[in-house]
């Protein structure tokens, strides 16, 4: 049952409203927002952060934070790429995804072990493992931009449809990787809503001791969660290089900040326990529209980073303020 009060206490409607207003603004200023190719470009830019945000959201819901997932994605895809190149692999792209997911799983398992079994603080652990993975990639594998195997190139060229903007003579292809995002979102939805494992993630974020007493296997759930984040990161890695048609080891650098900010913007409570996939997707959409439309609204590229910073601050500030004020109004309600 969704009452009006509950509806407006959530952040999804507000983020959606912000997206609508922003889109209309950009449309009014440039006339180029609601064009097929711009929307397809946006969807294209949306895939990678969207995939990463799924795991990121779950971790924050469980009461933790992970800043290593971009390093995991980069290293997993890079090792996979190198192995496939050196072995002259000509087969299906599925193997690439499986291998990369496997490497992601191993790295996620390291995070999971440190966090679930040794109960170490998540931020510091993942800062450490993130540095470890990045260092391994550039150090041990002396990574630099590299070719990708033909299977991945071919995968990158799979196009669902093409949107043409006749005014500007531009066309954009909708990559097939969007199906992976949709699939993952659907699986994540099922996991979070219809399995005890998924409810356990929320339960741990609400009260870890109570979860333990209720009979949730807290360690196993956390271990699973960080492994899952690793798998998702591995898959994201292959999606990314297939769309770019070459493997750039630094392609994910700094993206973790955007993703975390978007997840929080989408209403995920930073202290854990609350968060939805819908909100997360809306948060990412807002960030992507902002980032991709800066030029359309006339903000020079050199200022885009400052702009991102300002959005993170304003977005998290509004969310934090909203949480604080609902707490206050609840207090008032109880008094009367």
């Amino acid at each position: 049952m969704i009452t009006a009060r509950r509806f407006f206490a959530r952040s999804e409607p507000w983020v959606l409203a912000a997206i609508v207003i922003l889109s209309l603004l950009i449309q009014a200023r440039s006339g180029q927002f609601f064009t097929g190719n711009n929307l397809v470009d946006l969807a294209r830019a949306f895939i990678v952060p969207g995939l990463l945000s799924i795991g990121c959201m779950m971790v924050i819901v469980s009461g933790g934070i992970d800043v290593s997932f971009t390093a995991v994605a980069a290293l997993a895809m890079y090792i996979t790429d190198k192995i496939l190149l050196q072995s002259g692999y000509e087969g299906n792209v599925i193997l690439a995804y499986a291998m990369s997911a496997g490497f992601g799983l191993l790295m996620g398992a390291l995070n999971g072990f440190l966090i679930a079994f040794l109960r170490l603080p998540t931020l510091v652990v993942t800062l450490g493992t993130g540095s470890l993975f990045t260092g391994l990639m550039f150090g041990a594998f002396s990574a630099s931009a590299s070719d990708v195997p033909p299977a991945i190139v071919a995968h990158g060229k799979e196009t669902l449809f093409t949107a043409v903007n006749s005014d500007l003579g531009l066309s954009s292809n909708m990559p097939s990787q969007i199906l992976i995002l949709v699939g993952m979102l659907f699986l994540a939805f099922l996991l979070l809503r219809y399995t005890m494992l998924g409810r356990g993630i929320y339960a741990i974020g609400g009260d870890e001791a109570a979860a333990e007493r209720a009979g949730f296997n807290v360690r196993a759930i956390k271990m699973f969660l960080y492994c899952l984040v690793g798998v998702l990161a591995g898959i994201t890695g292959i999606s990314r290089i297939s769309m770019m048609a070459y493997a750039d080891p630094s392609t994910f650098q700094g993206m973790e900040l955007t993703v975390i900010a978007a997840v929080v913007l989408g209403g995920t409570r930073v202290t854990g326990g609350l968060g939805t996939l819908t909100g997360t997707i809306l948060g990412i959409a807002l960030m992507m529209i902002l980032a991709n439309s800066l030029i359309l609204i006339g903000i020079p590229t050199y200022w885009s980073r400052a702009f991102t910073g300002a959005v993170i601050i304003i977005g998290t500030g509004v969310t934090a303020h909203q949480i604080a004020s609902t707490h206050r109004s609840q207090r008032d309600l109880k008094k009367t």
Partner: peptide
């Protein structure tokens, strides 16, 4: 994280 982006930006 936000101020880091903002100041660098």
């Amino acid at each position: 994280l936000g101020t880091q982006q903002l100041y660098t930006g």
